[in-house]
Amino acid sequence: MTDQSSDSSADGLTGQVAQNVAKATPAAVVRKVRGLSDRAIAWLFISPTIFLLLAINIFPLIWTVYLSFTNYRANRPGRPIEWVGTRNYERLLGNEDIWGYLQATAHFVVWTMIIQVIIGLGLALLINRNFKGASFWTTVILIPMMLSPAVVGTFWTYLYQPQTGIFSYIINLFVSVGPIDMIGSVDLAPWSIIIVDTWMWTPYIMLLCLAGLRSIPDYLYEAAEIDRANAWQKFWYITLPRIMPFLMLAVLFRGIENFKMFDMVVELTSGGPGSTTEVASINLKREAFEKWRTGYSSAFAVILFVTVFGLGNIYVKALNKVKQ
């Protein structure tokens, strides 16, 4: 009853405001707008956004798909554009180097996600204990995330320097193995980029996990205490299910970001040694803006888009199931 009365008073107020606005609206505008339905007015308001969305997102996407079926080269404006059918796609999918780049990308994405989730969750559980100085340490841990990936890539090349870099020095304090060439070694280079990405982006996973942990009501743990649940049971049956949506969201965001990782890897390894760390986006940039094979690179971009979009959709469905 109380709710109803407050609703009606709110309606009355809104109506009064609407009347005042209607009175203040110039007659010419009223005449023009009078003929429009609510839906039309709604469209009128959102049309600039839709136009922008079409212009800067949808049109380039459709244009890229079109270019992927042509031999277009952006550095040859006078050359006629020829329709080549699926030739670019056939070349791409039949090129074993492309599969190598995709493999390098998958290795990078999978391992960064696994390591960052484990460390990020651990840090979040630690910070959530609210010890003295927790806020200070949270800020310290978040600092790498605030840096530019290009800057991070550049200064890690110095840290990785086999003779003068601190990375090799620290490892040699524990195991005497001599200078470690992280960037020049085929075996170590993929891990060199995983380590840097983990250093930079684990705080992001930690932050989202922390948000999840802080949203768990205390009474659940109190009830578990009464049931004599041990620490592991509390974590497994309360903490993990409750923070799982947050964790999955973090993995989704980071997974998409890492799938298109470019700047940090370019600065660190330039895709080398050989093509060991040439992730898909680096090769895409080489094809599009160094070789100027616009049609071919558009086809590659479409393949990457469909892959990310497809995997993303499957993942979001899984996320929704977890939420339910």
Partner: peptide, 20 residues
């Protein structure tokens, strides 16, 4: 030339530095 150069960069780096 840029395409020709990029191809050579890849092939020789793959062999000389990566040892493939």
């Amino acid at each position: 030339y840029a395409e020709l150069l990029q191809a050579m960069q890849k092939r020789v780096h793959d062999y000389v530095v990566a040892g493939n």
